[in-house]
Design a protein around this nucleic acid. Structure first.
Lengths: 113, 113
DNA sequence: TTTACTACCTTGTATTGCAAACTACTATCT
DNA sequence: AGATAGTAGTTTGCAATACAAGGTAGTAAA
C-alpha cells in the first residue's frame, strides 16, 4: 500500500471539479488548464486530461472552438456550457460535504491528542 | 455523467484515511466504524469496508482481535499498528495538500464572481 | 528536407467504491 | 427442538478514472 496510490485515488472525481472551475473563469486550451492546475500543486498528465475533457464534452458540460495560435499549431479552447455551470455548483456542494465529513472524522480524532 | 458517480470517485482514497483515524482514537469493530462514518455523513457499505480493511491488514497498517459480545455473535476488533499510525500521518498530509490545491483553484475562481 | 517546438490524442493497466449476494453466531419464539 | 430474528462477518464482479507509455500533426527555423 503506497502513499502514491492513495494520492491518485484521492484525486479521482476531484479533477473534473477543478477543470470546470478553471473554465468558469475563462475559456482555456489544454496547456493553460495544466498550467493552472500545476500552479495550485496539482500536476495532471495528458493521459488523464484528454479522456476527462472528452467525457465532460460528451456529457454536454463543455464545448470547444478552434483558434489559430500566433506561431504554432492551432489550439482547441474549451468552453463551459450552461449545463456545465449548473453541474459545477453540484460538484462544489459535493466537495464541501466531503471535506466536512472527512475533517469531522479526522480532526475530531486529532483533538484528543 | 452523474453526480453520484463523481461522489463515489471523490471518496476513493479518502475512506482509508477516515478508517485509520477512527482506529487511532479507539479499537473498533465494523459496526462501530460504520456508525462513526455515518455520524459524519459518510455512509459506507459492507462491500467497500471489508475489502478495505483486508487491504489495510495485509499492508500491516492494522491488526485485529476477537472479542465475545454480550449477547450476539463474537466481534472482530480492529487495531491500528505502529506502521499504521505512521502511514496515517502521511495520509493527513496528503489530504491537506489536496484540499489546499482544490480550494485554491475553486475558491480563486469563485472570488471573481 | 530535417529538426525542434507546440499541441492534440489514444490505449491498456491498476486500483477501489458499490451492488448484490452470501454464511454464521446467539437469543427468542413457537 | 426447530424456526425466526437480530447481529456480525464476508466475497465477487462491475464500473469508473488516474496514470504510464506511446503516438500523430501543424508551424517555424535551421
Amino acid at each position: 500500500m503506497k502513499i502514491e496510490n492513495t494520492k491518485a485515488q484521492m484525486r479521482k472525481g476531484v479533477l473534473e471539479y477543478c477543470i470546470l472551475s478553471i473554465l468558469k473563469e475563462r475559456d482555456s486550451y489544454v496547456a493553460e488548464i495544466l498550467e493552472n492546475l500545476k500552479t495550485a500543486q496539482l500536476i495532471v498528465v495528458e493521459g488523464t486530461i484528454y479522456p476527462l475533457l472528452n467525457r465532460l464534452k460528451n456529457a454536454d458540460l463543455l464545448t470547444y472552438r478552434w483558434e489559430e495560435s500566433t506561431g504554432g499549431p492551432p489550439r482547441k479552447y474549451y468552453i463551459l456550457t450552461t449545463k456545465g455551470a449548473v453541474f459545477l455548483e453540484e460538484l462544489a456542494s459535493t466537495w464541501d460535504n466531503l471535506q466536512k465529513a472527512v475533517n469531522t472524522i479526522t480532526n475530531k480524532n486529532n483533538s484528543h491528542e
